[in-house]
Design a protein around this nucleic acid. Structure first.
Lengths: 238, 238
DNA sequence: TACAATATACGTATGCCGTACGTCATGGCA
DNA sequence: TGCCATGACGTACGGCATACGTATATTGTA
């Protein structure tokens, strides 16, 4: 990292190529034009550098993708700082994963390649363990991390796949939604199946997500969050 | 080419190249050597055909991957036939997704590319809607499908990422598990983080998975499922 | 039976991709 | 001042998906 300690005088680094800048540019490209269109040559061009210069900061393209993944997890961790209330922290973790998935739908495929316990997340987890006190971490918290993260990732993937209605398509009419769903289906899909698809996609995602997260957290042994707004999905009725 | 002996019968195609055979071979290759090593040329070679012959049955490589995805969903659907007990069916759906992910960990990335509501799954969903009766599908069931599927997919992805302990690595000792976890982490990861990772991965996955599925299903409004075969169903509605 | 139409198999060629390797410029340090 | 580690760069190579033209087996039709 000589870039930060560079002398402020007349001389500067050659091009200022840096792992961080490369990763940021890669994420920009993925967000803008999809994972397919991320190529080393195009990336170098967008940075005003020669192709092979990138390899001074990145071992391979896979390494680059891993770095992008880690960066995304860093975003997630920043959105879910440790809290004194473990259950509440789990909620914020779920929301952070889901929101980050919404912000970078094209990058979702690589979120898991670097493992689901990358250092940035581990940092927050360790901090949360400390906060929750005790010599041994609370098993409820341990279980909650795995299950909540799995659910949020799956939810984000499902959303990005395009069939679950997403709030990012905010002002979508019912007709538009049906168009979108049917377009994603093979042309000769029987009407029964199209009807089923429309029914499934007609559900409101927001309450579903938060209610499921709450249910999972409760299932881990935590008290149900009473002072929560919303989350009025069906509770077991008499 | 006269090299291949033609079947003397009255079969249809020349070499027997078929979309199904191609898809099956592609899945075999993915399972055996990973998604990276699936190439059109290698696939054709393994089928004893010329490369471009594949394109008579497959529009593009993406189309092929979509077909593989659909095939996987067909496996899932076959493992989760419609049931008279909706809550029980949701459980079997979760298990089917997770088991299929275990059987094809290398193919998990493409499970979602074709959308999460592919025809094979829609078929079962429609059937399940019919079974549950009523003119309108039960909203609990609609919510359950989305949330259970999202959780199971996320769980499978997490498992395939290699950090969550998986039962496929059955006879793993504690030491081996730690080795596996630490190997997946960057070499200079601080001890605190390694400890946190080990703690998270030390949890037993089996009860976590089924308990979370049960919690989600319950969160959708279904009665808590008692795991008895002679199920007196928890159907509260006429 | 003969022949036309069609579907399928195949070879070649093209352009893009990741990246190994060698070279050269830079600037900090002795 | 001279040295050398670091980083930027050009060239080259093998592998990839696939567009296009062509050959051949099968089927429908007369």
């Amino acid at each position: 990292m000589g870039a930060t300690t560079r002398p402020a005088g007349r001389t500067r680094a050659r091009v200022g190529l840096t792992r961080q800048r490369i990763v940021a540019a890669a994420l920009d490209e993925i967000d803008a034009h999809g994972l397919h269109s991320l190529t080393m040559q195009g990336l170098a061009r967008s940075l005003g550098a020669g192709t092979m210069s990138l390899y001074n900061h990145v071992r391979s393209k896979d390494d680059l993708l891993g770095a992008v993944s880690e960066r995304l997890w860093a975003e997630i961790a920043a959105l879910a700082p440790a809290s004194d209330d473990p259950a509440r922290w789990l909620e914020s973790l779920a929301k952070a994963i889901r929101d980050t998935g919404r912000r970078h739908p094209n990058a979702l495929n690589i979120l898991a390649v670097g493992g689901v316990l990358p250092p940035p997340l581990l940092e927050v987890i360790a901090e949360q363990f400390d906060r929750s006190g005790g010599s041994e971490p609370d098993p409820r918290l341990v279980n909650g991390i795995t299950t909540v993260a799995a659910f949020a990732i799956g939810w984000a993937v499902t959303e990005a796949a395009g069939l679950t209605p997403r709030a990012t398509v905010a002002h979508e009419t019912e007709r538009q939604r049906i168009r979108r769903i049917t377009r994603a289906l093979p042309p000769e899909t029987p009407d029964r199946l199209v009807d089923a698809a429309i029914t499934v996609c007609a559900a409101e995602p927001e309450p579903m997500f938060s209610a499921s997260v709450a249910a999972i957290i409760k299932g881990c042994g935590y008290e149900p969050a009473s002072s929560r707004p919303g989350s009025k999905l069906a509770e077991p009725r008499p």
